[in-house]
Amino acid sequence: MESATAPRFAVVIDDDADIRQLLVDVLTQAGFQAIPTANGLDGVAAVRQFEPVITTLDVNMPGMDGFETAKRIRAFSSTYILMLTALEDEIDTLQGLDSGADDYLVKPFRPRVLRARIDAMLRRPRVVGSAAATKQAPAAPAAATPAAQAPATEQPAYAAPPPLAIAQEPVPQGAFQAVPVTGAQAPAVSSAPPAPGQSGWMEHNGLWLNIDTRVVRLRGTELELTRSEFDLLAALLQSNRRVRTKPDLALLLRGESYVTTYLVSEADKRAIEVHMGNLRKKLSENVNSPRWIETVRGVGYRLTAPDSE
């Protein structure tokens, strides 16, 4: 007998049986159908099969480690990746984020902290379905569902949870893989800059961002930003010249902008530095003479003065 709603899947990738069971228990309590796997290859296969909303991924595994596993998953899936690691060095944090993780948690961890991190990620905008499914969607003009990958069913492998209410006419942002913007509603297809009063657009020194469609354009070219990079840039544009601190931005990425009860560690602050560094690279920003983002040493970041060169 079929359930009224499709299950929400979560994939657990961890070679430690005790931790794997703990993760399954926490995710099950959160309303997910958890799929446990013990190595990277099986984990990648499970993500491909079940299209999970969230994937937890251990770093230190025999054979294919968590960094390589995350890269392979990101090649076809937009699942949230929460990386679990016993490594606290900065280089390991940077490598995890660069591999495609959305967030990370250092072992040992408390189940309530894990649940809070998961809930925070689910409050952030995401692409529905896998990146591969998104790219195939335009080829099915008569399809009623946006992610019809399985030929024998009319429903996708899972349904997005209620907290992930996607705004009307979303534009896939492709956090780690470029997804072309299509359709008559996409304002970024024109080479001319948007009109100043056009809905959703913000501009600073020739850099345009649309908060509704999550599109960023510079010199007529659409930039491919991750979810975190987009959210940080949007926060700075909305703040004008007001300084945003690293703890403030770290809470923002967790979806806890106005809640200060969560610990912001030094690793969280370094993660913001990594995201900002990657964002500046994509903007071709000169850190010695920035045009868009200034570093306020010891505090955080803010926009440059208007029309700076």
Rank of each mutant, 00 (worst) to 15 (best):
D268L: 00
L232Q: 00
L237E: 06
N288P: 05
A267D: 10
Q177W: 10
Y258K: 11
V259R: 10
G277A: 07
N205G: 02
N278A: 15
S199M: 14
N278F: 13
E154A: 15
Q238W: 03
M276G: 00
P290R: 01
V171A: 13
W201Q: 05
R291I: 06
P170G: 06
S289W: 05
R254K: 12
T261G: 10
A235K: 02
T213E: 07
A192H: 10
V215P: 04
E266R: 15
V189E: 12
L225N: 01
P163R: 03
G206D: 07
A178N: 15
T260F: 15
K269E: 13
E222F: 08
P180A: 12
A195C: 12
L252D: 01
V259A: 10
V264P: 02
R297E: 13
G255S: 03
E285Y: 03
G197D: 15
L253P: 00
L164H: 08
P196A: 13
S239T: 06
G197H: 14
G200T: 03
Q198P: 08
N286R: 04
A165V: 11
V274Q: 03
T226P: 02
A152L: 14
Q173M: 13
A188D: 15
Q185G: 12
K269V: 08
A250C: 01
L225D: 02
L223Y: 02
L218V: 07
I166K: 09
R219A: 12
P172T: 12
E224V: 07
K281I: 11
V243I: 05
A178M: 13
L236D: 06
E224A: 08
L223K: 09
V189I: 14
P156L: 04
T153Q: 11
G277E: 06
N240P: 02
E224R: 10
L207S: 02
K282V: 09
I272R: 01
S265A: 01
R227W: 06
L237N: 06
T295P: 04
L263C: 06
P247L: 00
R241H: 09
E266A: 15
P180C: 01
E294S: 12
L251T: 01
A267Q: 14
M202F: 14
A178G: 04
R214I: 03
A175V: 09
L251K: 02
P170F: 04
I166M: 13
I272S: 05
L218G: 02
P290A: 01
N286L: 01
A234P: 01
V216A: 09
M276P: 00
D268K: 00
P170L: 08
Y262T: 15
A235S: 08
T260N: 10
G255F: 07
D231I: 08
Y258C: 07
T226E: 07
Q155H: 13
L263K: 14
A160G: 03
P290G: 01
A167R: 11
V171L: 14
L233I: 04
K281M: 11
L209N: 06
A267C: 05
L279D: 06
A271I: 05
S289I: 05
A157E: 14
A267L: 14
P170E: 04
H204E: 03
D231E: 09
V181Q: 15
L225M: 08
E266K: 15
R280V: 04
F230S: 10
G200H: 04
W292V: 03
L283P: 05
Q173D: 10
L164V: 13
A167G: 14
F176N: 12
Q198Y: 06
